[in-house]
Design a protein around this nucleic acid. Structure first.
Length: 260
DNA sequence: ATGGCACGGCTTCCGTGA
């Protein structure tokens, strides 16, 4: 089974690139982030005509996640409150979480908040969001121990996941506080699929649109798949496909594909 | 130290992203 994650930065702008990519990359599941469209306006038919099922949790202008799957998914829910019922409703106003089960494997598709800058209210929200995510995943694991948690994490786990050894202490996506919050989640029993196969730095999934960052390979690895032990053992590959970043009018992120 | 580019929208600037 192949599961891909891709922050497309507007599915309507990227529609042709995504369907073209799917034609040449026959993944079983494609997890999208930043679809930036309400569900009623999501361009469903190109995917349905290719034989895929769609599961959507979108909103106007911002955020938005979707799972596109060759097989129907079971037990599909969106938002934290499907699992954490006591959470205040405002936690699901931003559409950042959708999950479903395929072949006994629970797939969780995430768009972690960016956090803006250290010291801002958005940064504090990101940290609170990650503590809620930990509890969400802890409960999901109780009913389904085989899980693939993927998406745009907006955190570079290690220095080698960033293009230059900038003083990252106060850089969003690289602070020790964010990295520790991620490690606290992974301590539930998840491992980074990409690092099973590749230990070198210089492998990135996002490049800033500005300053010719892609041409100069000034990137970050912030899009990840985290696997529970049995899936991690079974994993056969985890590949970043940088090719779509070379196209005209690309997303700033590229697809990452795990196979097990 | 700063800005740079791209997206959506009550669109011709602004909020947001990372």
């Amino acid at each position: 089974m192949k599961i891909a994650t891709w922050n497309v930065n507007s599915i309507r702008i990227r529609l042709e690139q995504v369907t073209e990519w799917l034609t040449h990359n026959a993944v079983d599941v494609l997890c999208l982030q930043e679809t930036k469209v309400i569900d009623a306006e999501f361009p469903r038919s190109p995917f349905e005509e290719m034989g895929y099922h769609l599961y959507l949790s979108g909103q106007k202008s911002y955020n938005g996640v979707a799972i596109i799957s060759r097989q129907p998914l079971l037990d599909v829910t969106s938002g934290f409150r499907a699992i954490l019922q006591d959470l205040p409703p405002e936690w699901d106003e931003q559409k950042r979480v959708i999950t479903g089960v395929i072949d006994g494997i629970r797939i969780v598709n995430l768009y972690v908040p960016n956090g803006a800058a250290v010291g801002t209210e958005k940064y504090e929200y990101k940290l609170r969001w990650l503590t809620v995510l930990r509890e969400y995943l802890r409960l999901l694991l109780l009913s389904q121990p085989d899980m693939c948690v993927c998406g745009d994490f907006n955190i570079a786990p290690e220095a080698k996941d960033i293009h230059e050894q900038v003083s990252t202490e106060n850089h969003i996506m690289a602070t020790e506080t964010e990295r520790q919050a991620l490690r606290d989640i992974l301590a539930l029993g998840f491992a980074d699929a990409f690092r099973k196969f590749t230990s070198e730095g210089g492998n990135y999934s996002w490049w800033d649109y500005r300053a010719a960052a892609f041409r100069r390979n000034l990137g970050w690895r912030i899009d990840h798949h985290y696997l529970t032990p049995i899936l991690y053992e079974r994993a056969k590959s985890c590949i970043i496909d940088a090719a779509p970043r070379k196209l005209t009018q690309p997303s700033d992120h590229v697809p990452v594909i795990v196979e097990f």
